[in-house]
Amino acid sequence: MSIDRSYVVEDVMRRWPATIRVFLDFRHACVGCPIATFHTIEDSCREHRTAEAPFLAALREAAAKPQEVLSPGG
């Protein structure tokens, strides 16, 4: 499943935790923001004046990578 511009920011970060780094790299202050619970990717790009296409591409790339599994104790 591909991330779409209509997806809610918090849902994206919860489902694909690796995307959090993308939000930070693009200087979107969405991590921990209460607005992330109802703002879409489209809203976030508009608010932070980011071109949607490269942002979505970066989100999709991060989401496609295998999730790192941490073992207890390290």
Rank of each mutant, 00 (worst) to 15 (best):
M1E: 15
L59F: 02
T37I: 01
D43S: 01
L24Q: 13
H28G: 11
P17F: 00
H39S: 06
G73C: 10
G73M: 09
F38S: 02
R27H: 11
R60H: 04
A18Y: 05
L24I: 13
E61P: 06
F38P: 00
D11R: 11
D4F: 12
R5N: 10
P66A: 09
I41T: 05
L56F: 04
A57W: 02
V22N: 06
D11N: 14
A64I: 04
C30W: 07
L56Q: 03
V12Q: 08
A18S: 15
M13N: 14
A36K: 00
K65Y: 01
F38L: 09
C33P: 03
A58W: 06
F26T: 04
V22M: 08
F55A: 08
E52A: 03
L70G: 05
L59K: 01
R46W: 01
A53W: 00
A62S: 12
T19A: 10
R14Q: 13
E10Y: 10
R5Q: 15
A64E: 09
Y7M: 13
I41Y: 06
S44M: 02
C33L: 00
E68N: 10
S2D: 13
R21M: 14
H39A: 08
E47G: 06
G74P: 04
V31T: 06
T40R: 08
V31L: 06
M1A: 15
P54C: 04
A64M: 05
P34G: 00
P34S: 09
R5W: 01
C30G: 07
Q67D: 06
A57R: 07
E10L: 15
L59Q: 05
R46A: 02
E61Q: 14
D25G: 08
C30F: 03
V8P: 13
R14V: 05
V12C: 12
A53D: 10
F26W: 08
A62F: 04
P17D: 12
V8H: 04
D25S: 11
V9A: 14
A51Y: 03
A36I: 01
R60V: 04
A29W: 00
